[in-house]
């Protein structure tokens, strides 16, 4: 069960879009900041395969400017 967290910074003016897109992803929890253009993303996937797919999806999001890893954890 890999668990990761990131700070996601949206492209200018795209915070709402980014939040919607992230919220629609499985294994993904978000916490948008109230007063800054930044979103906390926590992912928790059942296995490595799903994790890989999710990471690809994340980095492929159009509304995303940058994604920085802040925490990682894996049982194995």
């Amino acid at each position: 069960m890999p668990v990761f967290s990131y700070l996601a910074i949206p492209k200018s003016g795209a915070k709402e879009t980014l939040c919607t897109e992230l919220a629609n992803l499985e294994h993904c929890r978000i916490m948008p900041a109230d007063n800054h253009e930044v979103v906390v993303v926590v992912t928790d996937t059942p296995d490595i395969a799903t994790e890989k797919v999710l990471q690809e999806t994340l980095t492929g999001l159009q509304s995303l400017q940058s994604l920085s890893l802040t925490f990682g954890f894996d049982d194995n």
Binding site: S5, L7, R29, A33, D34, N35, V38, V42, S68, T70
Partner: peptide, 24 residues
């Protein structure tokens, strides 16, 4: 627990980068 630890460290990082940032 691990998820909240993950969220916690991301938020702590955000706090360092953007002073005064707030969540609710």
């Amino acid at each position: 627990f691990i998820q909240s630890a993950a969220a916690g460290s991301a938020i702590a990082a955000a706090g360092a980068i953007f002073p005064g940032i707030s969540f609710g």
